[in-house]
Design a protein around this nucleic acid. Structure first.
Lengths: 143, 143
DNA sequence: CCAAAAGTCTACTAATTCAATAGATTATTA
DNA sequence: TAATAATCTATTGAATTAGTAGACTTTTGG
């Protein structure tokens, strides 16, 4: 399950993607519309800013806006940033690999196969899922 | 990520599957070989017993053994039992569905699509991954 | 038949992670 | 230059996960 933080991040990003190239959006505006605690959202946006996904503008008329193009931001990137590994087992993770403590011998472990497959499929699907796709889909559904 | 509990459960099951139809195995034996805290393992095995995956025999010469056939126990069943939902979002879960709090309108939510796809693929792969497969794979790798 | 073995059950406690809040600070611009 | 809005540091509270303790029950081999 994705954490609340990650879900908040996705919703905030979609909101910003819907307003791409329309100037900065206030944190307060995002917080209100997406029902996210403002202070928590601040931290989340800041993290995405540091990851160069968002930019911000301080002072009057400031706020946050997408730095990357909506078609260049996919779910894999967001989940990794917010929650860490995509895979279900650390010993199968590409970006957050860790040796399985409970594994006596990783080489002969028959469990990893299935989870490697799941990881690959998940990455394939989620990397295709971009903010641009989501916004498009949203607009179709709203008709 | 799967919880430790779930990983312990999988390892214990694989261990028992390797010894299928060879009589009951002591909790202590499983705990020692798989490096699982015994008391914690007790609770895990009990849960799987209540789910009719395992059977147990009390008293001297007792222990736990697989009740279901190794080819009939797959990863989906174990993960659901130990950790709950397989899907990454509650609003996309088949067995643990919950309305997304942060979703203003679930019907027009463009986020769900991708995660529905991930759920389906994950279920497909993990339901094919049975104890029998894992043991077989393990024996091949050990050669 | 009874003592030892081994699972069962209830109830905690500790540790970690997740979620949220508070408040002071800095930068910007109208 | 005052108001606005993001930035940063630090903490707190809540929930979940992991692990422990100990008494109880059942079974069976000698």
């Amino acid at each position: 399950m994705l954490s609340k933080k990650c879900k908040y991040a996705i919703h905030a990003l979609v909101y910003l993607a819907e307003r791409y190239q329309q100037g900065p959006v206030h944190i307060q505006d995002i917080a209100d519309s997406q029902r996210i605690p403002k202070k928590f959202l601040e931290a989340i946006l800041l993290e995405m800013r540091n990851a160069k996904i968002l930019h911000s503008k301080k002072g009057k008329g400031g706020g946050y806006y997408l730095y990357k193009k909506p078609e260049d931001v996919n779910m894999v990137e967001i989940i990794r940033l917010m929650d860490g590994a995509i895979s279900m087992l650390p010993c199968v993770s590409l970006n957050y690999y860790e040796r399985c403590e409970e594994c006596t011998n990783e080489v002969t472990c028959g469990i990893r196969d299935a989870f490697t497959g799941v990881r690959d499929e998940t990455l394939k699907l989620l990397s295709k899922s971009t903010l641009a796709h989501i916004v498009k889909r949203q607009r179709e559904l709203a008709k």
